[in-house]
Amino acid sequence: MAVGATAINILGFVFLSHAVYSAYEHSLLPSASQPTPPSRLLPSFLDPRVNLPLDITLETLFSVLLLCVGVVLSSPELKPIQWNVWAGRLERSKEARATKEVGVGGGNPFAGVEERPGFLDIRGQRKEFARWVREGER
């Protein structure tokens, strides 16, 4: 689908470029420089200075729609939101099982949480405490 999405993006870009050029050329016409009648619906600061023809407006909207569809179709597959689903997929992959070093090309995604170099090592302290209790009994 990437080839089709690329073609849609290119087509949308061509249409958008043409619409921008057409709007620029229309703004240079002497008839476009005449003041437009004020709108009763819009406030004066939102009222356009140049009235664009309907075909340029429709071409601009069509090209933006094409670009939006092309970008959505060309985007990569979404990853799971839940951490455990992502980690389970990663741990089941061959690359993650073959990698032994953490942080290089895979490995256990929970290793950073399990090691926690900046946190207190409860297991290590529990072992030290058990050894201290055993030595104190002798």
Score class of each variant (00 low, 15 high):
K127V: 05
A98D: 08
G118H: 07
D121N: 14
A2D: 11
D47H: 15
F119K: 05
E77Y: 04
K100D: 07
L66H: 03
E128N: 13
R134H: 05
L28A: 12
R40E: 11
G106I: 03
D55E: 12
R97W: 04
C68H: 07
R89M: 07
L67P: 03
E137M: 05
V102I: 11
S93K: 11
A19S: 15
T99H: 04
L41H: 09
V14R: 01
D55W: 07
N51Q: 10
K100M: 06
S93D: 03
I10Q: 09
Y21M: 14
S93R: 11
Y24A: 12
E128L: 13
L78Q: 12
V64K: 01
L90K: 11
A111H: 08
A23M: 15
G118R: 10
L28H: 08
V113R: 08
E135G: 01
L41S: 12
R116L: 00
S17Y: 03
L52V: 04
E115P: 00
I10V: 13
S22A: 15
R138C: 00
E115L: 11
G12I: 00
I56Q: 05
L46A: 13
G124Q: 07
P117M: 10
R40P: 00
M1T: 07
P48D: 02
S75C: 12
F62P: 02
D121Y: 05
N108K: 05
L54G: 05
N51G: 09
N9G: 10
V50P: 01
L120V: 09
S33M: 11
L29S: 15
